[in-house]
């Protein structure tokens, strides 16, 4: 890989890490996800900077081509993330249902009490 490309990629990754930090600061992302995303960024920077890192790891793990390793890892991580998000969405949906039910019933209760007060 040419050095200029390497530098460009490292800069992009640093910007990426910065964006992650900033969104956590702005409360757009939970710390939980900060760890996940920053670890992926840091691993990518290491892979870029350490010479022959990808080749050696993929040889060690028994992949025929380094690109195979990268693709399989990327797909596994993406699948895990989607699975996790599906679980999260379902949980939030259930919470939402409960909240809507409770709020609606409280509203009814308030209405009734207000009407009683007016009559007294």
């Amino acid at each position: 890989m040419q050095n200029s490309l390497k530098i460009a990629l490292v800069v992009i990754l640093l910007i990426y890490l910065f964006i992650i930090l900033k969104s956590v600061k702005k409360k757009n992302m939970r710390i939980n996800y900060l760890i996940f995303w920053s670890i992926t960024g840091i691993i990518l920077i290491i892979a870029l900077l350490v010479p022959n890192f990808v080749d050696n790891v993929s040889k060690f793990l028994g992949f025929e081509l380094p690109i195979n390793m990268i693709f399989s890892f990327a797909i596994f991580i993406a699948l895990y993330l989607i699975f996790d998000l599906t679980k999260l969405i379902t949980k939030e949906q259930n919470n939402n249902i409960t909240l809507i039910q409770e709020i609606s019933m409280l509203k009814k209760r308030i209405d009734e009490l207000e009407r009683k007060n007016k009559n007294n």
Partner: peptide, 15 residues
């Protein structure tokens, strides 16, 4: 009881 958002039949009956 007026549900503030549409929940579908299951959520409505549970209310």
């Amino acid at each position: 009881v007026n549900l503030i958002k549409n929940l579908g039949i299951g959520g409505a009956v549970q209310t």
